[in-house]
Amino acid sequence: MANIIISKAEDGGLTFYMPKKDLEVKVISLEFEAADKWGGELKLASGQSYYIDPMAAPSLPKSLRARRLD
């Protein structure tokens, strides 16, 4: 499990940021994006994917815990 921050990108998409590795990548897709169920599998532009437990849609930016899937 790693601490990450999800925030809104300038182009309207989402940005994934991992402070520990200083890694800032665009999020390509998010499994759930509804207001009451948000989260699930995150696909990153770098090819990696992470999982965050689904939750009610938070106000961004938000610090979260994520698990690496690959």
């Binding site: 921050i5 925030s7 940021y17 402070p19 930016p61 938000k62 610090s63």
Partner: peptide, 9 residues
């Protein structure tokens, strides 16, 4: 950028 992100959140 670190402190900016913190203040944003």
């Amino acid at each position: 950028n670190y402190i900016s992100r913190h203040m944003e959140e």
